[in-house]
Simulated scan of single mutants.
Amino acid sequence: MQTHLARAAASVDTRAAIPEPFADDALVTQPQLKRLTGDVSDMTIWRWRRAGIIPEPTSIRGRNYWRAGDVRELLARLAGGAQ
Rank of each mutant, 00 (worst) to 15 (best):
residue 1 M to Q: 10
residue 2 Q to V: 13
residue 4 H to I: 05
residue 6 A to Y: 10
residue 7 R to H: 12
residue 7 R to W: 03
residue 10 A to R: 12
residue 11 S to C: 08
residue 11 S to P: 01
residue 12 V to R: 08
residue 15 R to Y: 07
residue 16 A to W: 01
residue 16 A to D: 15
residue 16 A to V: 04
residue 17 A to P: 01
residue 17 A to N: 03
residue 17 A to Y: 02
residue 17 A to L: 09
residue 18 I to M: 04
residue 18 I to A: 02
residue 19 P to H: 09
residue 20 E to A: 15
residue 20 E to P: 00
residue 22 F to K: 05
residue 23 A to L: 12
residue 23 A to K: 11
residue 24 D to T: 06
residue 24 D to G: 15
residue 24 D to W: 01
residue 25 D to Q: 10
residue 26 A to S: 15
residue 26 A to F: 10
residue 27 L to P: 00
residue 28 V to L: 02
residue 29 T to Y: 06
residue 30 Q to T: 13
residue 31 P to W: 10
residue 31 P to M: 11
residue 31 P to V: 12
residue 32 Q to S: 09
residue 36 L to F: 12
residue 37 T to L: 11
residue 37 T to R: 05
residue 38 G to P: 12
residue 38 G to F: 06
residue 38 G to H: 07
residue 39 D to E: 14
residue 40 V to Y: 09
residue 43 M to A: 15
residue 43 M to C: 01
residue 43 M to G: 08
residue 45 I to E: 02
residue 45 I to Q: 01
residue 49 R to H: 06
residue 49 R to W: 01
residue 49 R to V: 00
residue 50 R to T: 04
residue 50 R to I: 00
residue 52 G to Y: 09
residue 52 G to Q: 11
residue 53 I to S: 04
residue 53 I to W: 07
residue 55 P to F: 02
residue 59 S to Q: 12
residue 59 S to A: 09
residue 59 S to Y: 05
residue 60 I to T: 07
residue 60 I to R: 09
residue 61 R to Q: 14
residue 62 G to H: 12
residue 63 R to G: 00
residue 63 R to E: 15
residue 63 R to A: 15
residue 63 R to K: 14
residue 64 N to V: 00
residue 65 Y to N: 04
residue 65 Y to I: 01
residue 66 W to H: 05
residue 67 R to T: 06
residue 69 G to P: 02
residue 69 G to W: 08
residue 69 G to N: 09
residue 69 G to L: 07
residue 71 V to I: 14
residue 74 L to F: 12
residue 76 A to S: 14
residue 76 A to E: 14
residue 78 L to E: 02
residue 79 A to M: 02
residue 80 G to N: 10
residue 82 A to E: 13
